[in-house]
């Protein structure tokens, strides 16, 4: 079962990419995604494609993982391509009844598809090389300045930590309940969708009741260990920005700047 539990499919490793500070990785990924939508010319896309490619190679991740990251969104990609090709007004290339594939549409469609591919590939690189714990710490740290605006940075991070902790426990409990109900003759496999959905009720009710009981006990245990929110709390893990973080940031910034300049000159 542990295989099914790797959330965000983190691949443990000790490469340069793995060791980058999670805050740096988060910020760079965000900047990348924003700039992605400013790219216009093939040269800019080529530069943008090189960044995640270099990341995968440096992280020593097999390139088939790029494909694995894309597989769930293939349908969305195709749909984007088809809809854009048909719906954009312009010179018709090929007619299907009252619909026409236009040259402009094809271009917009391909462009959108490429952007989505790069978006998926890059964000997958982040979750492949950053452990959920580091990711949580990074998000908490980045959100901290916004606390004055009412962003519950610590609470969000604590919820993520506890959710990660309890996923295996609840999965195991679900398995146990499933077996217990099957032993009593429950049928989860036959019938149409509605029937099967209804069959899940005897699974979900005890699972939820159990989860609430656990939450109650956990809250008591946390209080017993002096938990009183994020105020005055320290962390045992310390993150420091290293030279490799600066290098990664500089290289990414240069590439993103190129894309922006390219757009300013090209339009």
């Amino acid at each position: 079962m542990p295989d099914a539990l790797t959330i965000g499919h983190y691949v443990p490793g000790d490469s340069v990419v793995h060791r980058l500070d999670s805050r740096v990785k988060l910020l760079l990924t965000m900047a990348y995604v924003i700039v992605l939508f400013f790219a216009v010319r093939p040269g800019a896309y080529a530069v943008l494609a090189l960044l995640p490619l270099a990341g995968y190679l440096l992280a020593r991740l097999p390139l088939r993982m790029v494909w694995q990251g894309l597989r769930p969104v293939v349908a969305v990609l195709l749909l984007t391509l088809i809809l854009n090709a048909l719906m954009t007004p312009g010179h018709p290339l090929y007619r299907i009844g009252r619909l026409a594939v236009t040259a402009e549409g094809l271009q917009v469609g391909v462009e959108m598809a490429v952007r989505l591919i790069l978006l998926m590939v890059t964000s997958t690189l982040l979750t492949l090389t950053t452990s959920p714990i580091e990711l949580t710490d990074g998000i908490e740290s980045l959100l901290r300045p916004f606390r004055r605006l009412g962003v519950p940075a610590h609470e969000l991070a604590m919820m993520m930590t506890i959710a990660l902790r309890f996923i295996p426990t609840l999965l195991e409990e679900a398995q146990n309940i499933l077996k217990a109900q099957q032993a009593r003759g429950a049928d989860f496999e036959t019938g149409n969708l509605l029937r099967r959905a209804r069959a899940m009720i005897p699974l979900l009710v005890p699972l939820f009741v159990g989860a609430f009981r656990r939450a109650d006990e956990l809250a008591t245990a946390m209080e017993a260990r002096c938990y009183h929110g994020g105020e005055g709390r320290t962390r045992y893990r310390e993150y420091r920005i290293a030279r490799s973080d600066w290098v990664a940031a500089a290289v990414t910034a240069a590439a993103l700047l190129f894309v922006l300049v390219d757009r300013a000159l090209g339009v």
């Binding site: 930590t161 946390m222 045992y236």
Partner: peptide, 10 residues
């Protein structure tokens, strides 16, 4: 129901 984190040391 009393272990908070997903890593022993944490």
């Amino acid at each position: 129901n009393q272990i908070v984190a997903s890593l022993v040391e944490e």
